[in-house]
Design a protein around this nucleic acid. Structure first.
Length: 923
RNA sequence: GCCCGGGUGGCGGAAUUGGUAGACGCGUCGGUCUCAAAAACCGAUAAUCGUAAGGUUGUGCGGGUUCGAUUCCCGCCCCGGGUACCA
């Protein structure tokens, strides 16, 4: 009998489930380890072999830590609100909750087959009212908070109201969009509506008129993070800018902390860099330029205040409010039609036309604050309304965009930093000496920036300023399948729902589409009211639930709190977080934001969610192609295809093995191929191949279920790890799986002996192990432990293979070797490990035991054999007793016959001993 | 354009701190077993010269540091990812 993985895996799946082997219980006597995967959106297509890659890696880590004596929290759940279920509901009328439930069940089955050590008692689903109750609760907390810049944290809105009542808003240093000031008296005399309106400008969750990314095809707005290349990330529909009343979260208040704290966490450099770029901190100055013959002044932001003497014109964004006010009568018509034209162009068009320079002169002039010269004011759509102040001082000599604009419209270029050639291009580099710049002349750029800011502040026309690129996150979605926002409207003023009335449950609707008036689907619901007032009809975006789910796992079934204090204090933060890099500027930014917010409010004691983060690479598909000869039903093998005129067609990779097409299966695959003919090479039909995304339409989807059916879950786990480094993207190729399959069989055979009927019987001896056997084992223990700690799972699989090969060669069947081997292999191949463990006579799961300790002494041999080189060239091998010191080795080397021969009488200048291993003699 | 990664046999990939490059697996070739095939097992497998012992070259390209470089430094080429008028 060979190893029957099907039976064994079934047996242990049930055992694990029935005995709740992986249940995590807080235990203050043990050190905790929180291993988290980014939870999946349960899509209808189920899992393909790429999805579990990260789960397998984290599972190995979690199982390993458990064996090392840690109390491991390793949960799983579902990010179950989202667009696909809703799109499906729109098409079929089926409630998204039903589709979601079905998909979750399928996911669960698939996940169980792979043998994960998840504690399913802690499962969360973001679409479950008992979960989103707390998402709504956090939203209300955000709504009831403001950001105090002097204490540098979020505080209760009540403290702000008290401030306003006592002294108005002048002395308040808050993160706010408000520009007007009021006194204590004025505040008291404002009516309710005005007061609430003002407070919205301070709240961390606020309603405002915002320029949003509107996606007409999806009928909803999207956050910047959900828009890629001017189209929606999901579905790829066009997106346009639109002014709408919208809920937003004031993430910009946390910009500096989100940036600074990247230093504290062990995430990959590329991911940190992406977040840094996204936050986009830039230091510079804000400066006012008076508009000639008017009371207006134009406020600009620049990172190069040193080049202020080179400003030969000003440019306003088309959306800038001053455009209309300063344009002179003779230019008004032309300018206003330019403004309308640019506003109507979609984001995508504007992007596509980056190289098209457009702009128009307003007829107005600004006064240069230092030279008092009149400089023309232009409107140009290369200036973005949303960044800085929406206006720039244009320094064509030292900014390539200003340069292109100036060249195009023939505006003078004034060089103020030496080092470039103005005839050819602008000189943007931050080095060189200042010229033509009054009081800045002769300074280098760095000190000129300082000096310029000093003078600007002295003159009271501006100040040094730090700008961030990150915008507040739009939080409302005109969709059905999301968390309702717990806000109701009285006199058009938003008010929070009372905490005790949460959750606001998603109401039933007749259709999942917007209403005829363009209201979101929730507006269709009957009696969707609170205290007889209408409730907010937009829902939260997909990332709301995922911004705090790691906290809910700590105490997933708590009805009274999002998690208890004890649970939060015990599990604290995530020790290892595994997921895709595509969430770099979305989820991973929001989850840090919410964590900092909850920290500020005193609910949690950590201000970063995950200490260590690893991005697993994507597994691409490897498609197979067949070549049909034009106008025939004849297919030609890959190597001969160039002799014919052919069309390449995708063929189901499941009927191809090692690129050889199974002809019978192919004929059965589709009716039209039933009578297909083939031109073969060497009697085989060889398919072509291509690496592309795994998708149904390319017929290259490999399902983990099929792999498990054919080779077993252990084999799949080992093979996925063996493919290469976790973080690398790589194409799936089933060809190599026979290697890991063989390995598992060899492992099984180590614990068995063939009987007279050529069957394998369990056979193990209690003899003392030999030196070689102990060495093989302890080498493996050491390497595997090291590899797991540094997440190099591919190399530890190799180590296992070497170990099993060595023990097979040594014909080792000793308990003292094979028992520890079963333990250290169990994180990678839990099913066979459990079975072997049981055969060895243990009744409890292998996870209840301890990872064996590594003993250095077994690795040390009596003699070391050194390769010795002279001048790094000729080599010879020498052996020395272990007891020798470095100095003694050096002496011994020189005495050795081989070395004397190699040296030919020369005296070496230097003898190099490294790691007590390599000896090189320099002559 | 800018910012991050990366480039090693026929293929996926090892090489942990600068120390015997190519571990491990796949594939290929040869062998054992078999009437035969499959499976299994054993051996070979960077290139090149040589019957062999052995030599020479070799980690994208060009240079440098070093007794010694896949690893460090400078310049270039190519591939992948992110980002894109952010003043």
């Amino acid at each position: 009998m060979e190893y029957n993985f099907k039976e064994v895996e079934k047996k242990w799946r049930h055992y694990w489930r029935d005995h709740k082997v992986y249940k995590a219980i807080p235990d203050p006597s043990k050190q905790k380890c929180y291993v988290l995967d980014m939870f999946p959106y349960p899509s209808g297509a189920g899992l393909h072999v790429g999805h579990p890659l990260g789960y397998i890696a984290s599972d190995i880590f979690a199982r390993y830590k458990k064996l090392k004596g840690f109390n491991v929290l390793h949960p799983m759940g579902y990010d179950s609100f989202g667009l696909p279920a809703e799109q499906y509901a729109i098409q079929t009328g089926q409630h998204p909750a039903i589709t979601t439930e079905q998909n979750i069940n399928r996911y669960r089955t698939q996940l169980d087959y792979i043998g994960f050590s998840f504690d399913w008692d802690r499962e969360v689903r973001t679409s479950d009212p008992t979960y989103y109750k707390w998402t709504q609760w956090i939203f209300l907390l955000l709504y009831n908070s403001w950001y105090n810049k002097s204490s540098n944290k979020a505080e209760s809105i009540d403290t702000l109201i008290n401030c306003f009542r006592d002294s108005g808003n002048v002395s308040v240093d808050a993160e706010t969009s408000i520009t007007e000031y009021f006194s204590s008296e004025e505040w008291i005399n404002f009516n309710e509506k005005k007061q609430q309106h003002i407070l919205l400008h301070y709240r961390l969750a606020y309603l405002s008129d915002a320029s949003v990314n509107w996606c007409p095809d999806l009928g909803t707005v999207l956050a910047n993070e959900e828009v890629k290349d001017g189209v929606s990330e999901r579905g790829g529909y066009p997106v346009e800018k639109k002014l709408m009343k919208q809920w937003s979260l004031r993430i910009s208040a946390y910009a500096q902390r989100l940036l600074d704290d990247l230093e504290k966490i062990d995430w990959s450099d590329s991911l940190k860099e992406q977040q840094r770029n996204w936050i986009g901190r830039s230091e510079g100055a804000q400066v006012n330029f008076k508009v000639a013959d008017s009371d207006f002044s134009i406020e600009i932001f620049t990172t190069r205040p040193d080049t202020i003497f080179g400003a030969t014109f000003m440019t306003l964004a088309p959306e800038h409010e001053l455009v209309e006010m300063i344009v002179t009568p003779e230019y008004r018509n032309k300018v206003m039609s330019y403004v309308i034209e640019s506003k109507n162009r979609s984001e995508r068009e504007r992007m596509a036309e980056v190289k098209n320079i457009t702009g128009i002169f307003t007829g107005a002039y600004a006064i240069h604050p230092f030279t008092q010269e009149k400089i023309p004011v232009w409107v140009g759509d290369y200036v973005l309304a949303g960044y800085g102040t929406g206006a720039v001082m244009s320094v064509p000599a030292h900014d390539s965009r200003d340069y292109a604009f100036a060249k195009h419209f023939n505006i003078p270029i004034k060089e103020v930093v030496s080092g470039g050639n103005m005839e050819e291009q602008s000189y943007d580099a931050k080095e060189g000496l200042l010229i033509n710049s009054g009081f800045l002349n002769g300074l280098d750029v760095k000190s000129a920036i300082k000096k310029a800011i000093d003078e600007i502040e002295k003159k009271n026309i501006g100040n040094g300023k730090i700008n961030f690129r990150i915008r507040d996150a739009i939080f409302g979605r005109q969709r059905y399948w999301g968390e309702p926002i717990p806000i109701y409207f009285k006199d058009e003023i938003p008010y929070p729902v009372d905490e005790k009335d949460l959750p606001i449950v998603l109401p039933e609707v007749d259709k999942y589409l917007p209403t005829e008036d363009g209201e979101p689907p929730l507006a269709r619901a009957k009696n969707f009211t609170y205290k007889n007032y209408p409730l907010e009809t937009t829902t939260m975006p997909g990332w709301a639930g995922s911004s705090w789910y790691y906290l809910r796992y700590m105490d997933a079934n708590n009805p009274d709190q999002f998690a208890s204090k004890e649970a939060l204090d015990y599990w604290r933060d995530v020790d290892l977080y595994l997921g895709g890099a595509e969430h770099a500027t979305g989820h991973l930014l929001y989850v840090r934001f919410w964590t900092k917010f909850l920290f500020d409010k005193g609910y949690i004691s950590i201000d970063e969610p995950a200490r260590k983060l690893i991005n697993q690479g994507m597994i691409q598909g490897r498609s197979n192609l067949v070549y049909r000869i034009k106008d025939s039903n004849k297919f030609v093998s890959f190597g001969l295809k160039d002799k014919f005129e052919t069309t390449a067609l995708h063929v189901d990779v499941n009927i191809v093995e090692n690129d050889i097409l199974n002809l019978n299966e192919f004929k059965k695959w589709r009716e039209e191929y039933e009578n297909a003919d083939f031109i073969l090479e060497d009697g085989k039909y060889i398919c072509g191949s291509e690496v592309e995304k795994m998708s149904k339409s390319k017929w290259n989807v490999i399902s983990p279920d099929d792999m498990i059916d054919k080779y077993g879950a252990d084999c799949l786990r080992l093979y996925e790890m063996f493919l290469g480094p976790l973080e690398l993207s790589k194409p799936w190729n089933t060809n190599g799986i026979t290697g890991t399959s063989n390995f598992i069989r060899k492992l099984w055979k180590l614990y068995h002996k063939q009987n007279a009927n050529h069957e394998l019987d369990f056979f193990i001896s209690d003899d003392q192990p030999t030196k070689e056997e102990l060495k093989a084992l302890h080498k493996t223990i050491k390497k595997v432990a090291e590899d797991v700690e540094r997440f190099s799972f591919n190399t530890s699989v190799s180590t296992f293979m070497i170990c099993v090969n060595e023990l097979t060669d040594l014909k080792c069947n000793k308990r003292s070797i094979l028992e520890p081997l079963a333990i250290i292999i169990s994180p990678y191949a839990p099913f066979i490990a459990e079975e072997l463990w049981q055969l060895l006579g243990h009744r409890e799961s292998v996870t209840k035991t301890k990872f064996p300790d590594f003993k250095e002494e077994y690795l040390i041999e009596s003699d070391f054999s050194y390769p010795v080189s002279v001048n790094g060239k000729t080599k010879t091998n020498l052996s020395f007793p272990l007891s020798l010191s470095k100095e003694e080795i050096e002496k011994e080397v020189l005495k050795a016959d081989e070395v004397v021969r190699l040296l030919k009488g020369q005296v070496p200048k230097k003898v190099i001993v490294v790691h007590g291993k390599i000896v090189n003699l320099v002559v």
